[in-house]
């Protein structure tokens, strides 16, 4: 049981973090706080993916001694000890996801600026009030 918790608690931490962001996205009435919540949610997903790339005792996926002698390259295909290096794929996926996240953040902030220009506030309640007033 204890071993199970130790080997899975990292997932639970990321999920807790995601839920913090998710709650902020839904419950906060300030638009910037919603955006921050969105960022926390996305960052937690990124951490979650990255944690799947970990192998115990492995190092970063940069092959060592790669360019020592060109003849060795042909053999290298079989010589690489896969257990020695972390899984590169989640890193790549998350590089893409980070960019997507930044882009979403940018557009969300641009829209928030438009809202601010129109209503001079970012509090959802005040915006609703000023809409109701006409």
């Amino acid at each position: 049981m204890f071993e199970f918790i130790v080997s899975h608690y990292n997932y639970w931490m990321y999920i807790a973090l995601m839920m913090v962001g998710f709650y902020a996205m839904m419950a906060k009435r300030n638009l910037v706080k919603k955006i921050i919540g969105m960022n926390i949610f996305q960052s937690a997903i990124i951490l979650f993916y990255i944690s799947t790339s970990v192998k115990r005792g492995a190092t970063v996926p940069i092959l060592e001694h790669a360019h020592e002698g060109h003849g060795a390259v042909a053999h290298a295909a079989h010589a690489v000890d896969v257990m020695q290096y972390a899984n590169p794929l989640p890193h790549v996926l998350m590089l893409t996801a980070i960019v997507v996240m930044v882009a979403t953040l940018g557009v969300a902030l641009a829209v928030a600026i438009m809202i601010y220009k129109r209503y001079h506030t970012l509090e959802e309640d005040e915006i609703m009030m000023s809409i109701r007033r006409g």
Partner: peptide, 16 residues
């Protein structure tokens, strides 16, 4: 813009 902002929040939840 306000409608879009709500769409962004919902859409991001969906994509996430």
């Amino acid at each position: 813009p306000l409608a879009t902002f709500r769409y962004i929040v919902m859409g991001t939840i969906g994509a996430c």
